[in-house]
Write a protein that binds this DNA or RNA. Structure first.
Lengths: 257, 257
DNA sequence: ATAATGAATTTTGAATGCAATATGAACGAA
DNA sequence: TTCGTTCATATTGCATTCAAAATTCATTAT
C-alpha cells in the first residue's frame, strides 16, 4: 500500500458521478495526500483506482487494444486484485475497457463507426446543453466561464497547449453543469472521456486551434446574450468540427479510429 | 452454487452492453440452464448476477431506498461476495444503486428532479431515434416492428398488460437499434431502465393505455412512411406523455419520485 | 525447418479469511 | 421514560488463497 490508500471517512455517498469529480477536483486530488487535519474526502480503494485508471486511459497512458495485466497494476498501485477488478468492471460498463473472459481486460479500441456514433449522440447532447444552459445558468456561472475564456485565450496566444486544453474542458463541463441536469452532465462527461482519448493522439493542425478559439468567442457571446438556440447550434458545430479534426489528425497513423 | 454458475465459454467479448443483451436474449436466458450440447453462451458470475440484479431492481423486487444485504443475496444466488460486489459497483455506475461507504448498497431513489432530468435527456434521444431510424431501418426491421405492433394491439384489446408491455419495450428498443448507432442504443437502454422501475409501481389510468396505443399507431405509420422528423416528434411526445402519466400515477403514493 | 503435442508457468475467476467499521442491544444516569 | 455509554454482533472493505483456464515453451514428429 505505497501509492493509494488512506481510509477513514464517513458520511460520503458515492453515486458513480464521474462528472462531479472532474468538476470539483482537478487532477491534483491524486498527488496531494494531505497529512494534516484538513483531508480531502476519500472513498475507497475501488473508486480511487477507478479514477486513476480512467484518467490514465484518457491520457493515453494505455494505448487502445493494450492488455492490462492485473498483477502489474496491483503492484503499481500497491493494492490487491479485488478493488482493481471491481474498477475493471466499472470501466468496462463505461466503455473504456473490454473484458475478454479468462483473458483479461484490454483498452477499448473505438472503430471509426463507434467514433462517429459517439459523436452523433454528443452532437445532440451539445444542442441540448446550449439550449438549457442559456436558460438556466446564473450570472455567477457566466462570469466564471467568461473569465476562463479570457485566460484560455491568453494561453492560446502563448501557444500553451496543456493549460489551454484544461480550461477548455472546464468551460464545456461548466456549460453542461449550468443546465442543472445532472443526468446530462454525467452522460456528457462519460462520452467525452471516450473520445478525448483520441484527441491526445491526434496531430491537430494549427489552423484548427485558431478556428476553435474563434468558435469559442461565438459560444461565449451567445451565452452572454442567453441565445439558447444559437448556443446549441454553435456548441454542436464546435463538437462536429473537433471530431472531424481528430479524425483527420488520425489518418495515416496506425490507430484504429 | 445452486442457482447460477456453469462456466466454460470462449471467444465471447463483454463490453457491458446491456442493451444488446436485452434485445437478443429475453428473460428466458436465466431459467434455461442447458445440459446438452447447445449451450447458450455464458460469461462469468459477475455479469450473470449483474443481469439478475438489474432485472430485479427494474421489476421493483427491491424498492427504492431498500438496503441490499450482501450475505443474503450471496445465499440467494449461491455465489460468494466477490462477484456480487463487482456487480454492485457496476450497478452504482449505472445509477441503479447508491453505495454508502462501509454501510452497503441501497437502491437508488430518484427524486422528482432526477426523474425529470432523465426524462428531458431521453426526450432528446427519442427525437434522435426517430430521425435516424426512419432513415436507416431496413424493410425487414419495419416489417418486424409492424408485426409486433399488431400483436401488441391484440393484447391491448384483451387487456393483457404483461405481454403488451413486453412487446412495447421490444418495439422501442428495436427503433433505437434501427438507428444503427450502438452508443445511442446503450444510453437509451440504460436511462430507460432507470425510469421503468417507476412505471411498475405507478397506477396508470386506463385512458393513458388507450392514448398510448393511439400514439403507437401514429408512430408506426410515420416509420412506414419513413418520415423522420415526424417520427422523432411523435416518439418524443410519446415519452413525455408516458412520463407525465407515471408522475401522476405516483402522486399520493409514498414514493419519492 | 515447420507444425504439433504436452507439460510448466502465468493469469484469471471466484471463495475464503481477516481487520476495520457500523449496528444494535443492554445497561445505567438524568 | 429518555438519553447516552458500552460492549457484543453483524457487515463491509480488502487481502489472500485456491481452482480453472490460458499462455508459454520445450520436445517430438513430420
Amino acid at each position: 500500500m505505497d501509492f493509494i490508500g488512506v481510509t477513514g471517512y464517513r458520511g460520503w455517498e458515492w453515486k458513480g458521478s464521474l462528472a462531479i469529480q472532474m468538476l470539483e477536483a482537478g487532477p491534483e486530488i491524486i498527488e496531494s495526500l494531505p497529512q494534516g487535519e484538513t483531508r480531502i474526502p476519500r472513498q475507497n480503494l475501488h473508486s480511487e483506482v477507478l479514477a486513476l485508471l480512467r484518467a490514465a486511459i484518457m491520457e493515453n497512458q494505455f494505448k487502445p487494444k493494450e492488455r492490462l495485466n492485473e498483477r502489474l497494476l496491483c503492484e503499481r498501485f500497491g493494492i490487491s486484485r479485488t478493488p482493481l477488478r471491481e474498477a475493471f468492471k466499472v470501466l468496462a460498463s463505461e466503455g473504456l475497457l473490454t473484458l475478454l473472459p479468462n483473458r483479461g481486460a484490454v483498452v477499448t479500441s473505438l472503430s471509426i463507426k463507434d467514433f462517429e456514433a459517439t459523436l452523433a449522440v454528443m452532437a445532440h447532447l451539445e444542442t441540448m446543453i446550449g439550449e438549457q444552459a442559456a436558460i438556466n445558468s446564473d450570472a455567477q456561472t457566466i462570469a466564471t466561464i467568461r473569465a476562463w475564456h479570457h485566460q484560455m485565450f491568453a494561453h492560446f496566444l502563448r501557444r500553451e497547449m496543456a493549460p489551454y486544453f484544461e480550461l477548455n474542458q472546464k468551460i464545456h463541463l461548466s456549460l453542461a453543469a449550468a443546465t442543472g441536469n445532472g443526468v446530462l452532465v454525467s452522460l456528457y462527461t462519460s462520452l467525452n472521456t471516450r473520445i478525448l482519448r483520441y484527441r491526445y493522439q491526434a496531430n491537430l493542425q494549427p489552423e484548427r486551434w485558431q478556428a476553435a478559439v474563434e468558435e469559442h468567442e461565438d459560444i461565449l457571446s451567445a451565452l452572454i446574450l442567453r441565445d439558447g438556440s444559437r448556443l446549441g447550434i454553435l456548441l454542436r458545430q464546435h463538437l462536429l468540427n473537433k471530431g472531424a479534426a481528430i479524425k483527420a489528425g488520425l489518418e495515416g497513423a496506425d490507430q484504429p479510429v
